[in-house]
Design a protein around this nucleic acid. Structure first.
Lengths: 99, 99
DNA sequence: ATAGTATTTAGATAGTTAGCTAACTATCTA
DNA sequence: TAGATAGTTAGCTAACTATCTAAATACTAT
């Protein structure tokens, strides 16, 4: 399996959950700590949130940095273009080129 | 869960598999029968292919029509725009509006 | 050092997904 | 009608996912 293929698989899968999309949307505006994000999901436990963070991180949709006792998450938009190009490979009119 | 949310979830999930993306890409150019598609996946059984077709159909990414003993699949691009708008809701700079 | 806060890891459970083989339905042809 | 072809459904296993509670880790503050 090509690395790019796995990247697209992982990103698409991560995006197939509405809570993970909500997390990304929050981070779109500014970085937030795990606790700040989790507090906006009162129906989910902290470990479940942590799991979602790890799915997003594995898919390279977010980055993390530990600052003191907090973990600050930031959105990583570089894979966004991989997703778009993956979509265009499927839906676009151009033939795929091995660029 | 909103219907649009489920549509995006389903479409993203369907797109998280490279074989399903390959199917869509084949259908991008012209409709194909289940058998024509399956013959290009020699490593997968016909029932497995049928399963992938049903995932794609449930996600409204393809349509099907039975013609004689064949089932002809066509790509359905209408949900493509839902996917794009879902991505933009996450990544775009605009705030979401309940349109 | 001790206690408290933030977050993740571990382990359990329930549900889902991908793949297989075998069996079935539907259609066509002779 | 009988046989062949196309495709799906049923039933199964193995692997994965989501969620929880409880425990562990890491850091801060007293």
């Amino acid at each position: 399996m090509f690395k790019r293929t796995k990247a697209i698989n992982d990103a698409m899968f991560a995006l197939s959950d509405v809570n993970r999309r909500r997390i990304l949307k929050m981070l779109r505006d500014k970085p937030l700590t795990a606790g700040q994000i989790s507090s906006r999901f009162p129906l989910l436990s902290r470990p479940s949130m942590s799991h979602h963070f790890s799915v997003l991180k594995e898919a390279n949709l977010i980055d993390s940095e530990k600052v003191g006792q907090n973990v600050i998450y930031t959105i990583n938009t570089t894979v966004f273009y991989d997703i778009l190009s993956g979509l265009l490979r499927v839906y676009g009119e151009e033939n795929e080129t091995k660029s």
